[in-house]
Design a protein around this nucleic acid. Structure first.
Lengths: 116, 116
DNA sequence: TTTTTTTATCGTAATTTTACGATAAATTTT
DNA sequence: AAAATTTATCGTAAAATTACGATAAAAAAA
């Protein structure tokens, strides 16, 4: 990764720590109300939901699909194909990870034993 | 707010709930490693830090200033002017609010008593 | 088999984000 | 008073995000 080759509107990811990037990526995935709504919906159904998510949102199907893709890329949900339908469910572990990062990163640490 | 007037790349904020937007906005503010790093730095200094933040980051001063502005807009930090310097400190209450939203929103709720 | 349903992906348009240098404004310092 | 320091803001460029319609591919239904 050549830092000199970084062009204008690009995030300088390589310059930050693993943890900083991990937290930022998870937060970014949650940084859109549609994705919050999707995750909320999935949290309320223990059975994995398919494209009913689209019906609950006032957005185009392709837009919702895009948001699902992002949530999946961040590890916040996982999807399985069930015939022609595709079912998604929430990844509680990742959500827990986010909460832990939030808890650990912003804690006045005494040098050693610092989580972040 | 006219939904018909919504143009292409614009977030459809008006279509989502207050809470969904609040959580999304806070998450979005944390959705960049530089802002995570800044918040981390502020968490470690009980005394409010000024532009030393710039020295800890491999980013231009103007870029850091922009990130500080965003964190401030989200309510995650607050700043006071001390002569020519400007001191920032973390807003623990907002961070707590974020944690609470995260805790409450994605909790299988039994219809009534649902936080989100 | 043909039609319908379901969903991911492509193409496109507009906006927003990220980053930097330059500059301005307001202190301090000399 | 002049020079230096500090920081917010402006202007700009490039990339990423958001949104939608159209389409493709695969399975289910007719």
């Amino acid at each position: 990764m050549n830092l000199k080759n970084m062009s204008m509107g690009t995030r300088k990811t390589a310059v930050f720590s693993e943890t900083e990037n991990e937290l930022a990526d998870l937060a970014k995935a949650l940084g859109h109300p549609a994705r919050v709504a999707i995750l909320k919906e999935l949290a309320n159904r223990n059975v994995c939901v398919c494209g009913e998510i689209v019906d609950t949102l006032p957005l185009a199907q392709s837009t919702v699909s895009q948001h699902l893709k992002e949530l999946k890329a961040a590890g916040l949900i996982s999807g399985t194909v069930e015939g022609v339908k595709s079912c998604y469910c929430i990844n509680w572990a990742t959500l827990e990870r986010l909460k832990n990062l939030l808890e650990d990163c912003f804690k006045p640490c005494s040098d050693q034993g610092c989580a972040c």
